[in-house]
Amino acid sequence: MSNAQLILLDKRNQPVKEYLVAVAASDGLNIKGVEVMASPAKGEKSLLNASIYIPPLEKFDYNPKKLVAESLSKLIIGEETLSIDSFIERCSEDPAVREALTKSITKFSKNLEKLIKEFCVSDVIPLIQESRNDALFKLKTHAKELKGKNIVCLDIEATNISTDPEADIIQVSACDINGKELFNQLINPGYDIPENDKHNITTEMVQGQPTLGQAWDMIHDTLLEADIVLAYSTESDFMYLEKSAEKKMLKFDLDYNTWLDAAELSKDLIGAMRWHSENMYWFFKTPKLTVAYEEVLGKPFPGDAHDALADARATVELFNAMLEKGKQSKVEEKKPKKQQEQITNNPFAALAQLK
């Protein structure tokens, strides 16, 4: 008979902080100082230790029991991840020790659940849940309002970021809401394309391709005829077009009010919450297109993440998947609070209230 048991070590110097909960909510968390120790007997040297990983709280509906089960499947030793059963096997070859450790899993799980509950009762959790519900309602509304609309999804590759006045467009692509290609045009900027980790387009690839001026009418008019222009980060794509038109003296009649940003929608739906220590407020980070795609659709990102047409098609697929989540959700619009009538002795203020 063995007295071996699993013990939860909690060497944290301070209680759970709200920003830790925010990190754990979307990303999961490996808490420094929290470990599982396989003890052969009281006072004896540990057989083996592993770090505890708290999986993303949102993914498991903030349910401590589900989170514990996932944690026990992903114990960490160095760079290796292993299950509680594999951990016990590695602790000892003695069948009696392994049996004793296995029997102690239930007690250990209860202690781990108590720790994880600290995260799930944080004041940050309702803030996150409210934001997700608001995002679902927004998507539900879009699904109704955009039905039957001519939606064109755009993506642009350029020589540099959109805020650089010297940046030039070198690929512009668009597809419809079903992913059908509308155009996929490489653009010759008229000079050698500098190396850039944002795209894979070379000088050789654009040889013989039209200049932006030569392709402009096709690009501009397709976007102008759309009811909605969809993009992942509309601000940068619109800026590329607007600045290019100004620089090259091309017509520009596009209206940013008809553009819809899939990045903003994904930020509200799945973005990681963080605390802005300087300005003292919570905010949600905008995920990269590849991250949003894989998280919402639950499958690997297709094709090349630096090709404009591939990105446009992935954006449409992501957008449709988010709309479907909105349609399937049971969220309802918040009813506005009834405003109390204000009593005033000021006749001008009273008159203003009547307008």
Score class of each variant (00 low, 15 high):
260 L>S: 07
217 D>S: 14
230 L>V: 09
181 E>S: 11
284 F>W: 13
265 L>R: 07
268 D>G: 15
232 Y>G: 02
257 N>L: 11
209 Q>G: 00
292 A>M: 09
170 I>G: 06
178 N>T: 08
168 D>F: 05
186 L>E: 06
191 Y>I: 00
156 I>H: 01
228 I>S: 07
220 H>Y: 15
189 P>Q: 11
215 A>C: 04
285 K>F: 01
193 I>M: 07
215 A>D: 06
182 L>G: 07
266 S>Y: 11
285 K>D: 12
180 K>P: 00
160 N>I: 00
160 N>V: 01
256 Y>W: 06
152 V>Y: 10
155 D>V: 04
191 Y>H: 15
214 Q>M: 05
179 G>N: 05
234 T>V: 15
223 L>E: 06
185 Q>G: 00
239 M>Y: 07
289 L>T: 12
275 W>L: 02
162 S>R: 13
237 D>G: 02
217 D>F: 13
213 G>M: 10
209 Q>S: 14
276 H>R: 09
258 T>K: 08
157 E>I: 03
209 Q>T: 08
163 T>L: 11
256 Y>Q: 08
206 V>S: 02
211 T>P: 09
154 L>D: 03
196 N>Y: 14
182 L>T: 07
219 I>V: 15
258 T>C: 01
262 A>Y: 12
161 I>V: 12
208 G>P: 11
221 D>C: 01
166 E>Q: 15
257 N>I: 03
223 L>A: 02
195 E>I: 02
168 D>Y: 10
166 E>S: 12
189 P>H: 13
238 F>H: 12
276 H>F: 10
253 D>G: 03
185 Q>E: 10
183 F>S: 02
215 A>L: 05
261 D>L: 00
175 C>A: 04
260 L>Q: 14
226 A>R: 10
165 P>A: 09
278 E>S: 03
198 K>P: 00
279 N>L: 12
165 P>T: 02
166 E>T: 15
203 T>Q: 11
190 G>H: 12
197 D>C: 00
158 A>V: 01
225 E>K: 14
226 A>M: 08
219 I>H: 13
194 P>T: 08
203 T>Y: 08
166 E>V: 05
264 E>F: 02
235 E>V: 06
164 D>R: 12
152 V>H: 10
172 V>M: 10
242 E>K: 14
161 I>M: 04
232 Y>K: 02
257 N>G: 15
217 D>N: 13
275 W>C: 00
250 L>E: 12
196 N>R: 10
213 G>I: 06
217 D>Q: 15
201 I>G: 10
253 D>F: 05
216 W>K: 02
250 L>P: 03
216 W>M: 05
262 A>C: 12
